[in-house]
Each structure stands twice: as structure tokens, then as C-alpha cells.
Design a protein around this nucleic acid. Structure first.
Length: 376
RNA sequence: GCGGAAUUGGUGAAGUGGUUAACACGCCGGAUUGUGGCUCCGGUAUGCGUGGGUUCGAUCCCCACAUUUCGCC
């Protein structure tokens, strides 16, 4: 079903927007952080827990579900919602990011991308049509256009060629899109060059998608400044009334800076991946529960946090679980980290309503980076 | 009591008469941004049971002692 996105308020001092959309009789607000559940599960968490944390849209991945269990099985199960028992909105990534992470430039052709199946080594061809066809069958609520996600530092010439090819792929994907209940988002690329972002955005908008994504960011150790330019150079040329989604963005400060530049949606693996490696977000910076100093720290990760983990367990206990490689540790940290990013977006929405987003950012920076404030 | 073997960091251990004592685990840090979940990158023995000796030089050779262990009585 299509989400009818509405902007409720624009912040006075920035390009931030507070918005909402309906899904299944429920209202969801933006800016929103979307947890990632690549293989039809947000690792270690149940759908009930995800919802309790205040999550709205969650992600899943075309490439992974294509290989296993296969889109036909998901389809016969009644679609992704029924398969994984999640009744909130689901967005599927197109496999475009796997072009970046798994394929070599020589694997990319006009037709599509040749992948080596990481499970059994088979050679597979993923095309824009195939990606959309898979996503149609998965029956997610938002499908992504199949794009190439080149590293931000790629040469201007390469980025231009890549954008043009991605535009042709976008057109082919749109033609192939048959699921009327599913929205389809286009993707803007172009590194941190304004003219390329402008070209990519305006040409993608001409194809008239249901929403637009900003891709090719935070994938190449580019500076934060360049990344924020990429946000701005993209949203600047996108229609106001449509959702804008910064793909893969999930460091707290990057979410704030993205919102300031007019982005509505963010997703990132960081809360769950960091959790598996023993890290927790806090207002005063990221902490590593593996550090010896937490061995006898019988206080919660954050006393102000309203998550299940912080209400029930101490750092010393979670540290022990992580050290002992117990999966419950990763679970508790995933709950905390996802809740942290969701409550960050809640605070951002309040700051938009009171036109105080810049003040909120300053306050956040000071707490999060402390003495390093300004250097990041 | 007699005879043999062993003794290298927190652990299991490799090693050689001559610059920085291998490797693994553990431990201590760090990384991680549209996830190929248990990964990657650093650091971690001023020291080779103790005391003597041989030698230009010894963890490595010799002697004594200690400890552990095996066998015999």
C-alpha cells in the first residue's frame, strides 16, 4: 500500500522537515531511523521488540533473499510481511549496495551485474528488471531502484558514466515494476560534486518515483564535510513533497546533519553490528563494553535510557555476556543501540517543532564528542 | 632410596651457541555507516627453574641444587 507522506512542519533555520505517513491504519513520523534486517530479520530481535522500540520502517535485502530462501518461497509464504510476521512497513534494498561491496568494476555491464554467489560460488546476473521482479514478489512496501553505488572518491568521469547507466537502469526498473501496492524509490548518485548530484537528481525526478534516495555516501572514508555536501547537493534538487532517504547513514551526528539538509529517512547496520562487537551508543559517545573498566560497573549503559536493556541490566553483566560470546549480549546491545537512534530521531522531531535543531546539534556535539568537539 | 625425563609469558607451546625468543589462545586497546553476523587491525616474555662454570658470547654446552613427572624397590 502506498504511504501518503505529508510534511507537518518545516524548521525555520534549516531545511529540516517533520512529516508523517499512514500505513496499515498507523501513523508514522519522520525523520525516521530504519533498522536493517537484511535476511528478513533484524538480527537477534523479534518483530514485537522492534515495534516496542518505536521502529517504523525496517529494511530487508533483495540480494540476500534472492539467494536464500528465494523470492518464490517468500511469495508463497504470503510475502515478506507474513513470512517474517512484521506488520509495519518494509523497505527492500535493490542489491545495488552489493554491486559496491561484492562486485568488481569489470563485473558491471549495461545489462546488469555479474555476482559470484557468496554461498556456493555460482555466477549470477542481477539486472534492474530482475531486482524489481524479485522485490515485487517479496511484496515489500518500498522497493529501491537497482543502482550502481560507486565509491565517493571515484573519478568524475567514472561517476558521470555510472550515473548515466544508473539512470538507464532506473528507467528499465520502472518499466518492469508491476506491484501496484509497492512504492518505488529512485536513487541519486554523484559523489560530492554538485553538478553531478544535480544532474542525477533532476534526471531521476523526471522518471517520477514515489520517493528519492541519496546513495554513494559514507562508503569511502570521505570526509564528513563531503558527505554533508552530498546530502545538500541532492535534496536541493528533489521535490519537497516526496520522502528523501539517505542510504546507509547511521552515525548519530550524520543523522542530525542529514535532517538539517532535508533528509527524512535513514538506515544503518551500525546499531546491530556494533552491538555484536560489544559497543553501545550513549549521549556521551560510543562505549566499548569489552573495555576492562566495565568489569565491575554495576550501572546501566545509560540511566536516562528507557530501553529494556538499560532498565534491567548492568554494564558488568553485558560485558560478561559479550566476553563469553553469549548471543544474549548482542541482543541486549542491539535493543539499546536501536532504541538510542530511534529516540534520537524523536528528539530531532521535537527540535524541528520548536525550531531549535541547530541548538540541539550543538548540544549533542558537545556531549558526544566532548573535547574533540569541532574536530569531527 | 635408585634410575630416567622435563622445567621458555596468563595458558598451550616452537626454537637456536651470536642482531628484534615463532605461532596459537587469552588479555589490553582500536576499527566497523543501503550487513558475505561471530570480522579486521594493533599491543602484549629487558626474558627462557635457581646458583655456578665453559666461551669473545649462552635460553641453547657442563656441574650442583630445586620442582614436576615416569619407572623400579
Amino acid at each position: 500500500m502506498k504511504l501518503d507522506f505529508k510534511i507537518k512542519k518545516e524548521e525555520k533555520n534549516t531545511k529540516a522537515r517533520w512529516g508523517e505517513f499512514n500505513f496499515n491504519g498507523k501513523v508514522y513520523e519522520t525523520p525516521m531511523f530504519m533498522p536493517v534486517g537484511t535476511q528478513a530479520t533484524v538480527k537477534t530481535l523479534s518483530p514485537e521488540e522492534i515495534k516496542e522500540m518505536g521502529a517504523g520502517i525496517i529494511l530487508s535485502n533483495t540480494y540476500h533473499l534472492w539467494l536464500r530462501p528465494g523470492e518464490d518461497i517468500v511469495s508463497r509464504a504470503g510475502g515478506l510481511h507474513q513470512f517474517m510476521n512484521y506488520d509495519g512497513p518494509i523497505l527492500t534494498d535493490s542489491g545495488g549496495f552489493q554491486v559496491f561491496s561484492l562486485a568488481k568494476p569489470s563485473d558491471i555491464s549495461e545489462e546488469g551485474v555479474v555476482f559470484k554467489n557468496h554461498l556456493n560460488g555460482d555466477k549470477l546476473l542481477l539486472t534492474p528488471e530482475k531486482s524489481i521482479e524479485i522485490q515485487n514478489k517479496l511484496d515489500s512496501d518500498i522497493a529501491m531502484s537497482f543502482d550502481e553505488c560507486p565509491p565517493a572518491s571515484a573519478s568524475y568521469t567514472y561517476l558521470k558514466e555510472s550515473i548515466e547507466r544508473t539512470l538507464r537502469w532506473a528507467k528499465r526498473g520502472k518499466m518492469a515494476h508491476k506491484n501496484k501496492n509497492q512504492m518505488l524509490f529512485g536513487i541519486v548518485q554523484g559523489g560530492y560534486y554538485e553538478d553531478l548530484r544535480k544532474f542525477s537528481a533532476t534526471e531521476t525526478v523526471k522518471l517520477d518515483f514515489d520517493g528519492y534516495s541519496i546513495g554513494g555516501v559514507a562508503n569511502d572514508h570521505e570526509s564528513k564535510e563531503d558527505m554533508y555536501k552530498a546530502f545538500l547537493y541532492s535534496t536541493k534538487y528533489l521535490p519537497k513533497e516526496k520522502l528523501r532517504y539517505a542510504m546507509g547513514i547511521g552515525e548519530p551526528i550524520d543523522i542530525i546533519e542529514g535532517v538539517i539538509r532535508g533528509v527524512d529517512l535513514f538506515d544503518c547496520v551500525s546499531p546491530t553490528r556494533l552491538a555484536r562487537h560489544g559497543h553501545a551508543f550513549t549521549k556521551y559517545g560510543k562505549i566499548n563494553l569489552k573495555n576492562a573498566k566495565y568489569k565491575e560497573d554495576f550501572t546501566p549503559i545509560s540511566k536516562d535510557c528507557d530501553c529494556y536493556t538499560c532498565k534491567s541490566f548492568t554494564k558488568a553483566y553485558i560485558k560478561h555476556l559479550i566476553n563469553a560470546d553469549e548471543s544474549f549480549g548482542a541482543r541486549l546491545l542491539s535493543i539499546h543501540n536501536i532504541r538510542f537512534l530511534i529516540s534520537l530521531t524523536e528528539e530531532i522531531r521535537e527540535a524541528i517543532q520548536s525550531d531549535s535543531l541547530k541548538e540541539y546539534r550543538e548540544c549533542f556535539l558537545k556531549n558526544y564528542y566532548g573535547d574533540h568537539y569541532g574536530k569531527k
